[in-house]
């Protein structure tokens, strides 16, 4: 099967890769680019474990065909930390025990970042709606909401 050459900017670096047209962006990121942070929970847009920012919009990478990413700018969870220093969201998830098995965490972090980029001071309701596309089978969500609230406070302080 012919493979298409795709040029993207991922986590700030220009990245070229080859992919079959039917491959999802999620599988291309994981198998061709070697970024395994985004996870496949469902493959159908329901769980959000595969969330990435594509041209600054939070998207399920499982619903994107890899060739659609040609020319796009992508942020995955691997791009959140800044030269070894965790993003405030990551730090607050760790300190607030907002994860257990961790499968959902990369998706929550990306969706939370998308929210805070647009709305630095969200209400609890706004956070819950913004994270409605992310499912977690372990935490019961409360600690995740608290971690996002805490990160928002810290980020506004900076």
């Amino acid at each position: 099967m012919a493979r298409t050459h795709i040029t993207t900017v991922i986590n700030g670096d220009e990245v070229d890769f080859l992919s079959e047209d039917s491959t999802s962006l999620l599988n291309a990121l994981r198998d061709e680019v070697g970024l395994t942070g985004a996870k496949e929970g469902c493959g159908t847009g329901d769980c959000g474990a595969c969330s990435v920012l594509m041209d600054d919009m939070v998207t399920c990478a499982c619903l994107v065909f890899a060739p659609e990413a040609d020319g796009a700018t992508i942020l995955t969870v691997e791009g959140l930390a800044d030269s070894g220093e965790l993003h405030p969201l990551q730090q607050c998830f760790l300190e607030g025990a907002a994860l257990q098995c961790g499968i959902c965490t990369p998706g929550f972090l990306i969706a939370a970042k998308a929210l805070l980029d647009k709305n630095p001071d969200p209400t609890e309701t706004e956070i819950r709606y913004a994270l409605a596309g992310n499912l977690c089978r372990c935490t019961g969500y409360d600690k995740i909401i608290r971690a996002v609230q805490e990160a928002a406070i810290q980020m506004r302080g900076n």
């Binding site: 594509m54 919009m57 939070v58 619903l63 409605a132 596309g133």
Partner: peptide
């Protein structure tokens, strides 16, 4: 329609 992830598409 769906979540923020779906709305972007």
């Amino acid at each position: 329609i769906g979540s923020d992830q779906i709305q972007s598409r």
